[in-house]
Amino acid sequence: MIRINCPVCGLRDETEFTYGGDANVKRPAMDEKDPKVWMDYVFNRSNPRGDHQEYWHHTQGCRQWVILERNTLDHTVGQCRLAKEVK
């Protein structure tokens, strides 16, 4: 079980969170009309071996989405930031 240092709640078990996928994808602007851009946003992921920035949702805590650095190879976790504070 990985443990996530929620900026609001402190160090908590992974079981309090819901995984939210790659945090490097940027949602296109609302007026974007190119389906390819939307396809990339919704479906295409790089699936890196090693360091990964990913969304986790503190569903059983403060309800904040956080961006966590996690190594996909050995599960070590790094910095954890509030998504809403990352532009």
Partner: peptide
């Protein structure tokens, strides 16, 4: 209910800050 709430929170916190 839970799915819709989580999705809306995601939009507001990550894309539509």
């Amino acid at each position: 209910a839970a799915k819709v709430l989580a999705f809306m929170e995601h939009l507001l916190q990550t894309a539509w800050q």
